[in-house]
C-alpha cells in the first residue's frame, strides 16, 4: 500500500554513545503497511542500534523514531502497543512449555482473552509440531524457538513487526517456512522491518532493501529495481567503496 501512512518511521535518527561512538547517523527510513523492509549491513553497521531505538531500549541523541505516528522516546508504552519483536536468539522461559510462554507473552501484549485453542492455532500456523506445544522450551532446537517467537508476534497481532536476524542458523526447510509466514503477514497488511545478513532471502522476500554502513543508510532499492541486479555484488561494492554517499530518500 504505497500511499498509506508508514507504520515504522525513522526521522533523522541519530545515536551517539557515551564513549563518543556514532552508531547511527541521521537515519531516514519508512516501512508502510503490507511492506517487508530488509535492512542489510555488516556487524556494527547500526542495524541492532536501530532496532533498540525503535523498541525504546536506548534514547536517540537526535531525531525520532515513530511507531504508528507515536514518538517512541516520548511515549514508549503507547508506541510499543503497536509493534511485535522477534529477536535473533528467541528468548523464552526454559522451564515453561511452548503454550505457557505463548500465553505469558500474549498477555503482556495485551491479548488477555485468548483461549488454548487460539494458542494452538497460532502455533500450528507457524508450523510448530503439535507434540512440542506442551513440551518445555529448554529442549527446543533453534528453528523451533524461532517459530515460537514468530507465533508470539502473530498472536500479539500488532501492525508492525521487528525481526533481528531471523534466518541465521535455520536449515533450508525452516527458512522456507519462515518466508511463507512473512508473506502471510505482508498479506495481512503488517509492516515488517527485518535486519539480516541473508542477501539471498532478502532479495526473495523484501519489498525494499536497504544497506547500512557505519551508521548510515547508503543504499535503498525496491524489489522491482533489484530484479535485474546482482544484490550480492552491490552489497560487496558498497562495503568496499571508500566514501559511501547517503541514499536518496
Amino acid at each position: 500500500m504505497e500511499n498509506a501512512k508508514p507504520i515504522l518511521k525513522a526521522d533523522g535518527l541519530t545515536k551517539r554513545y557515551e564513549d563518543g561512538v556514532l552508531a547511527l547517523d541521521h537515519l531516514n527510513l519508512e516501512v508502510r503497511p503490507g511492506e517487508i523492509y530488509c535492512l542489510l549491513g555488516a556487524n556494527g553497521a547500526g542495524k541492532t542500534t536501530t532496532i533498540n531505538l525503535f523498541l525504546g531500549f536506548i534514547p536517540p541523541t537526535e531525531g525520532a523514531c515513530l511507531i504508528n505516528g507515536i514518538d517512541v522516546a516520548r511515549d514508549p508504552l503507547e508506541a510499543k502497543k503497536y509493534v511485535s519483536f522477534v529477536s535473533e536468539n528467541v528468548m523464552l522461559y526454559g522451564n515453561f512449555t511452548a503454550r505457557q510462554n505463548l500465553d505469558f507473552f500474549a498477555k503482556l501484549g495485551g491479548k488477555t482473552a485468548l483461549t488454548k485453542a487460539d494458542y494452538y492455532k497460532a502455533m500450528g500456523r507457524v508450523s510448530l509440531q503439535e507434540k512440542a506445544f506442551d513440551q518445555r522450551v529448554k529442549n527446543f532446537s533453534k528453528g523451533m524457538r524461532q517459530k515460537l517467537g514468530i507465533a508470539i508476534a502473530v498472536v500479539k497481532d500488532a501492525p508492525a513487526v521487528l525481526l533481528d536476524e531471523p534466518t541465521s542458523g535455520l536449515d533450508p526447510k525452516a527458512a522456507a517456512e519462515f518466508l511463507e509466514i512473512m508473506a502471510e503477514l505482508r498479506k495481512e497488511g503488517k509492516a515488517v522491518l527485518m535486519s539480516t545478513h541473508d542477501i539471498f532471502r532478502a532479495k526473495e522476500i523484501g519489498d525494499r532493501v536497504g544497506i547500512m554502513r557505519e551508521g548510515r543508510l547508503v543504499m535503498e532499492r525496491t524489489r522491482a529495481e533489484l530484479q535485474n541486479e546482482d544484490l550480492n555484488r552491490i552489497y560487496i561494492d558498497y562495503m568496499e567503496s571508500e566514501a559511501a554517499a547517503p541514499a536518496a530518500a
Binding site: 503507547e78 510499543k80 529477536s87 495485551g110
Partner: peptide, 14 residues
C-alpha cells in the same frame, strides 16, 4: 542475560 527481559520490555509494560 537470558534476554527475556528485553522480550518483556518490547511490549507495552511499564
Amino acid at each position: 542475560e537470558s534476554g527475556t527481559l528485553r522480550a518483556m520490555l518490547a511490549n507495552s509494560l511499564p
